[in-house]
Amino acid sequence: MSATPAIRLPPGRRVWRWFLDYGTGAAVILGLLLAWELAVRSGTVNPMFSSSPSRILVAGIDIARDGSLARHLLSSGYTFFVGFGLAIVAGVPIGVFIGWYGWANRAFSPLVSAFYTTPRIAMMPLFIIWFGLGLGSKVALVFLSAVFPLIVNMQVAMQNIDRDLKRVGDAYGASQWQLFRTIALPASVPFLLTGLRLAMGRGLLGVVAAEVFGGSEGIGYLIEYAGATFRIDVVFVGVFLIALFGIAMDRGLYALSRRLDSWKTAG
């Protein structure tokens, strides 16, 4: 956010400003795509290995037309949102609990750290044995990928509550529950949003990893299968879709955090 949010630029300058903010990044991406296309067309690069933007576009339209793209997207989306949703429902309260009570922190922190640093994909064979090759094992991987950033962030949020504010709560006779509701909870919102953004990235990684590992549908499977059959264009379709989804989610969460943190700058 700029340092002077209150100043309104005149309309012409605002359009120019908007263009500068978004146009520059877009121009770089477009330039790269153009260079890629030209490199292939001029014969400098073999499309067998690199594909090209136009080929990727055609492949994307093809798999969208025959309905396979929708099936894969639906499958991945379902896996992601179930796993991510469960991670929020479980991770936030667990993190708050561990961060709020000193004894819980002592008891569970080492365990959380151990899980937080272990690559979750290492456990995929176990999940497949426990939950089967279908949705179960994939959701388990997404859940475990996304839940720890949430736990850790909420834990840190609880441990970073301003002591002065806590003292104010104490001085005004707040109960433990009131301290939690009026001070700890609002103070933890920025940490929650950071946790969500991290969890989103990890969860996305989990979806693709699980689908690459085993299974018969999903964007990860699409990429894996296309790679094995040398359909580089389809691989890129999958990669771009994941990137677009990640950017959209991240921008959405960022916008949400700007809204919720408006008190930091607003008058």
Binding site: D162, D164, R167, V168, T182, P186
Partner: peptide, 23 residues
Amino acid sequence: FQRPSLLPWRTVLGNVIYGLELQ
């Protein structure tokens, strides 16, 4: 207290009623 220690996510009014709210 010496430091204002206001709840930054509450408006002036929200801060003034804090003690009453707790009661």
